[in-house]
Amino acid sequence: MAARIHPLLGAFAILVFLFLLAPLVIIVGASLSDTTYLTFPPQGLTLHWFANIFEISAFRNTAITSFQVAILGTALSLLIGIPAAYALNRYRVGLPKWLGTLFVLPILVPEIVFGFSLLKSITIGLGLPIYPSLIIGHALLVLPYSVRVVGASLASFDFSVEEAAISLGCPPWKTFMTVVLPNIRAGVIAAFILAFITSINDVSISVFLTGPGISTLPIQILAHMEQFFDPTIASVSVLLMLVTVGVMAIVEATLGLTFLTK
């Protein structure tokens, strides 16, 4: 597509980008303010609020939980999602159509309904402790990324390569690991990143599954905000933005950021 852009339209787009980025700049500014309340522009500069995060054990603990849950939940979703994506693409005929839809249900069902139902079924119904409940809940939440994104990679994989390896005597499992997996590497990385970021930022599921003693960082931020409205929240937010920067750097290095518009 190519067309000329009216200057007014160009100006509008610039305003949109200001609208998108200004609030994030404001958070960074507020996190540096030498005041006990949130303000922008910062009055006096201090890193005190960043130090404060590490002094509050609830932030330390929930940050660790969030990372563990995101990594383990994502790993579990890939572990069950990649075989499913492989089967859906490899044996297209013979598998019922609804199977593909089944695996994207976690994004179709309202997250808050899913979270509430998980609480009733696994935390209370099965009496599962909080930590495994969180991991399973997050694994299911991000399963659609594992199945769909890896599936998109597999859709463009030429399975005759795999058949060649097998007919030359390579065992199926080894064929998958040495022939198929390297070819869908980009899809697996992308699925991992999308799943990780979704899990680490999740509120609607975690809010039902966290409990006394074990919580995730976003839930802890919400709880802290109900009592204090100081720049600590802004500095935690800045750290979360740094995680985003890190993730984007990984995307750029492995897949290129244009990947995200596809």
Binding site: A13, F17, L20, L21, P23, L24, I26, I27, A30, L38, T39, F40, I197, I200, N201, V203, P218, I221, L222, M225, F229, I233, A234, S237, L240, M241, T244, V245, V247, M248, L257, T258, L260, T261
Partner: peptide, 27 residues
């Protein structure tokens, strides 16, 4: 690419952080 980065960055930043920004702005 710059425009896309500018759109992706907020998208990947959590909903709590992005909603919190408006608490500072609109309070």
């Amino acid at each position: 690419s710059i425009a896309i980065i500018a759109a992706v960055f907020p998208l990947l930043t959590g909903v709590v952080v992005r909603s919190f920004a408006w608490l500072i702005i609109l309070g």
